[in-house]
């Protein structure tokens, strides 16, 4: 398709490095609005919620890269690391707001949250899963680990996304459009991957194992 091809060609010309900074503009914007008194009666809650949502958005965007290429021919692979790392950065900021501004470092309450509250357990587990992904996000790590091991490790992104969406759903008081939309998107993106794995698994049983470690798959 001509549109897809020209889009892919245009995307190739976009430098990735500046996008790391562009991705973090919501942080500046939200903190600016918070100090400006523009976030309403409960600015902490808005910050906490928004940073969490941004983390989820970037996570879903990173996970959408492969299905978008497979089903739409859109090549966003150059941006995937940037998207995934942005999800991690927002998770750090989200967690910091929770610890510093929400719970205000009262470790008793944080401790109780950690073993009593499923949504906190889901969120914290998701964060822990993101750490090895962020640490092995460099080109060097890929070379050192080998493509196969690296890819295995980075499958942690799937349970991390599931935990993130559970963290969100477990928190809401009633079913509204927003959480349900994110849940639906997560289900579609992960559902497509599951389909891929199944298909690949089946064909591998029948035929020769598929070639692995094609560098552009990383």
């Amino acid at each position: 398709m001509a549109i897809i091809d020209s889009t892919n060609a245009a995307l190739k010309r976009i430098p990735v490095l500046p996008l790391y900074f562009v991705a973090l503009t919501p942080v500046v914007w939200l903190f600016y609005r918070a100090f400006d008194g523009a976030l309403g009666a409960d600015p902490m809650r808005v910050l906490e919620h928004e940073f969490g949502l941004w983390s989820l958005r970037f996570m879903l965007a990173a996970l959408a890269v492969t299905p978008l290429r497979k089903y739409a021919g859109l090549n966003l692979i150059r941006f995937r690391r940037m998207l995934g790392l942005s999800a991690f950065y927002f998770a750090i900021i989200h967690l910091s707001v929770y610890l510093l501004l929400d719970r205000q470092l009262s470790w008793g309450e944080i401790g109780a949250d950690l073993y009593k509250r499923p949504y906190i357990i889901f969120g914290m587990s998701a964060f822990l899963l993101l750490i090895p992904l962020a640490l092995t996000s460099t080109d060097r790590a890929v070379r050192k680990l080998g493509a196969l091991t690296w890819r295995k490790i980075h499958r942690l992104a799937y349970p991390a996304a599931v935990l993130m969406i559970l963290h969100y759903l477990w928190l809401v008081k009633s079913w509204t459009t927003e959480p349900l939309t994110y849940a639906f998107l997560t289900a579609v993106i992960l559902g497509l991957r599951l389909l891929d794995f199944k298909r690949r698994g089946n064909s591998a049983n029948k035929e020769k194992p598929a070639a692995i470690g094609r560098p552009e798959m990383l």
Partner: peptide
């Protein structure tokens, strides 16, 4: 699902 031990002042 959450603690009621303390509250945020609006």
């Amino acid at each position: 699902r959450w603690s009621q031990a303390s509250e945020r002042i609006i």
